[in-house]
Design a protein around this nucleic acid. Sequence first.
RNA 1: GCGCCCGUAGCUCAACUGGAUAGAGCAGCGGACUUCUAAUCCGCAGGUUGCAGGUUCGAGUCCUGCCGGGCGCGCCA
Length: 545
Amino acid sequence: MSFEERIAGVVREAARAAYGVELEVVHVERPNETAHGDFATNVALANAKAFRRNPREVAERLAEALDAPLVERVEIAGPGFINFWLTREALWQELETLLREGEDYGRGADSGEPVLLEFVSVNPTGPMTVAHGRHAAYGDSLARIMQAAGGEVTREYYFNDGGNQIRLLGESVAVRYAELHDREWSVSDPEALYRGEYIRDIARDFSSERGDTFLGMDQNKALTEIQAFAVGWCMEDIKKTLGRARVVFDSYFNEKSLYESGAIEELLRDLREGGYVYESEGALWLASSKLGDDKDRVLVKQDGSYTYMAPDIAYHRDKWNRGYRTAVDVLGADHAGYPPRIRAGLAALGIPGEFLDVELIRLVKLLRGGEQVKVSKRAGTFVTFDELLDEVGEDVARYFYVRSSHQTEMNFDLDLAIQQSDENPVFYVQYAHARIASIFARAGINPGELREMVPGDLAPEERALTLQLLDFPRVVRNAAARREVHPIPTYLETLAARFHQFYTVNRVLVDDEALRDRRLALCAATKAVLANGLNLLGVNAPEKM
RNA sequence: GCGCCCGUAGCUCAACUGGAUAGAGCAGCGGACUUCUAAUCCGCAGGUUGCAGGUUCGAGUCCUGCCGGGCGCGCCA
């Protein structure tokens, strides 16, 4: 149990003893100011009215009724805060727990609740861009964080390898392919073709693997082959980039399978039976306005083809049918209108709205030398995720992406990113880890083989470091619950700062053995938490720098 | 026009979803290496948290109205 929970518990007891009252919420937090104690609570302020007493009086009485061995002293401060200082024994005990749990420290109890996390899901029409990189970094880190918090997370990539975009890709490659052999390939709309350099790469690879035989045959037949090759090429390319960035998926879900399995037909039949669809103007509509959406949406177009709504609702129903009770979709901010529509569809099937949790990621605005660049995949004016990884490395890139909230628009200047990569705060955090490794190397012992230690007094820097270390589980839990990744970097930077401050003032390898053992323990604990935290972000924790 | 999101130091971002004197990094100025890694530490300077009201013991955080920016409001996905 965390200190917050334990303190909340004793405060509840005190309220029972002093007032015979059962408090509902007891908020305990770590004050910003060290002078305000290790922990503080505002219960006296929050309940003063109910007790019909002024807050300080309530605080006094609660403090008197307090019975807690882990608390060394309390102080009433300000308008009625109760500030707590913990005993050194209590702190050391928690540190020992931390050391014992090692890389499991911060891991919550398994909730047993399976969660499906879908992210990236970019269709295979080209390389990943820096914008997709943000999705990959955020989604993968979120998966790690939710797992650490006890969730049973499956990472899924949903893609469509059919449709207009894909046909366009095939034609684009075909034109280049023909060019390679000094031939021409006629397309309906040359303006619409993809122009990126990678199109030539695909054409070249296709040509060298399959020769020129496809130029002699029926265009449609050839196009099918070229298209399949191009899709495979792009998918391969995307997976390679993801792997480089240490992003792994548990499953890839193909939209096509929904057609093949009959899931879409089944969906439409069930919606019809439920009375949630109607025909109008030759199209089939979902009465989504009755289910929380702004207006009704077309499911089947006049020409008989489906809108994206049909497969997408079927896909989410499939997630539900697979046993997931939480589906987190990581989508671009331009999908703002998406959640209510899908929820409407799901509601028609009796699936509750809370099932779908959509996290919208703000756009990445691309700049060059301060000037905004219009990004277009078709025109080939984009920066790839690979280029970024080449320039700044995996650690810097991943850290950079998740350092700010996914809800904040991100200005991305590749020139600036390269220029500033060596002052990226990730090094500050990694350096703390390497410094500790170096201490252990010097001491000639392994962080896992510490001797039994005797609790002793904590210097101010040691105390601050300890409290920060013990805050880790709470930070992970909160981040997971709020689907936020950026609290982890924020936490790690503070932890690294606490360590560097401690290191500057207190020498670890001193002659006094008891003191030396305690400080080594503190170092080992810090090293473990830094490694755990960096791991949640997919960033390395180096032994040397 | 309607809906959602955002506005915090010169710049990039935090602030434990209502707490105490709003914090870091970068940029600027000044200090600290014969001692476990100076990719570090310490100090100075930098703010009317877009504006105006309201709610309460307390507001960057909640409510209302403005101002400014982004996104959405397709039989595109």
